[in-house]
């Protein structure tokens, strides 16, 4: 059930040069699956902003967001009070089976929705590997957090001549079932080199976020799909990269 939640801002802090992290306490308990997203009303702006959920811990919703325009800049500046949030939205990732193997591949702010999945996989005693790419080390997200978890994590920085693709090849990870989120060019390259099955999480400018307006529909191999409701997570092979570029 999608609910309009009144959420109290517990914390809003900058992360690196252009990102911030919001901790929100919802007035009621809410179940959010890894890979789902929320729409946050930003005071003074018409449309709610779609933001992926990083994770939910003890009823606290964590959002990691990149400043993309005036709306997200206003959200970054809002340090206290409350926010109206529509949640949960979209389908989310397929959760890995107990004791299985998971490879999380993220680029930039696309690493955020993978955190909840990684934590869920760790809880399920999975062998987890995370391969994250950023432009520079200053922009790296979740580095300390992942180093504290029982998993193998790798960071690639373009400024140092590396990216997730070179890392995936170097580590020989092409045969591990994966979940990926990041720039379209990154996901397309991941799609090209991986042998195993996997899922991709896409993004789009959205109107409603719950499937009514067709504002985020794209052509896929199985017809027109709404990124907000039929996605944002799509099985490998479903998305047509040219429609997302």
């Amino acid at each position: 059930m999608i609910t309009e939640l009144n959420c109290r801002i517990l914390e809003n802090r900058p992360l690196g040069p252009d990102c911030f992290q919001l901790l929100l306490e919802a007035e009621q308990e809410i179940e959010i699956r890894a890979g789902q997203f929320v729409k946050v009303a930003v005071p003074g702006f018409s449309l709610r902003r779609p933001i992926s959920v990083t994770d939910v811990e003890d009823g606290v919703i964590r959002l990691t967001c990149q400043i993309a325009g005036k709306g997200t800049a206003a959200l970054a500046a809002k340090r206290n009070g409350s926010l109206s949030v529509l949640a949960p939205l979209g389908n989310g990732f397929t959760l890995p089976e107990e004791g299985s193997e998971l490879l999380a591949v993220g680029g930039g702010i696309g690493t955020a929705p993978l955190i909840g999945l990684i934590r869920e996989a760790v809880k399920r005693n999975c062998r987890v590997s995370a391969v994250f790419g950023f432009r520079t080390p200053q922009q790296a997200l979740f580095r300390e957090e992942l180093s504290a978890l029982p998993l193998r994590s790798f960071y690639a920085f373009e400024s140092e001549g590396e990216n997730v693709i070179t890392l995936l090849r170097r580590e020989g990870y092409e045969n591990i079932p994966f979940a990926a989120c990041g720039p379209v060019s990154m996901m397309e390259a991941v799609d090209e080199i991986m042998q195993a099955d996997g899922e991709f999480s896409a993004e789009c400018r959205m109107g409603c976020g719950f499937g009514a307006c067709m504002g985020c529909s794209v052509e896929t191999r199985s017809g027109m799909k709404r990124i907000c409701k039929d996605g944002p997570v799509f099985r490998r092979g479903e998305l047509l990269w040219k429609t997302l570029r």
Partner: peptide
């Protein structure tokens, strides 16, 4: 009808713009 390519949505003060194109 498949409608228009992305992006189909933009925002403005006091509202929004859509170009869904009768999907």
């Amino acid at each position: 009808r498949n409608g228009n390519p992305q992006p189909r949505i933009a925002e403005c003060a006091g509202g929004m713009l859509n170009a869904v194109g009768l999907q």
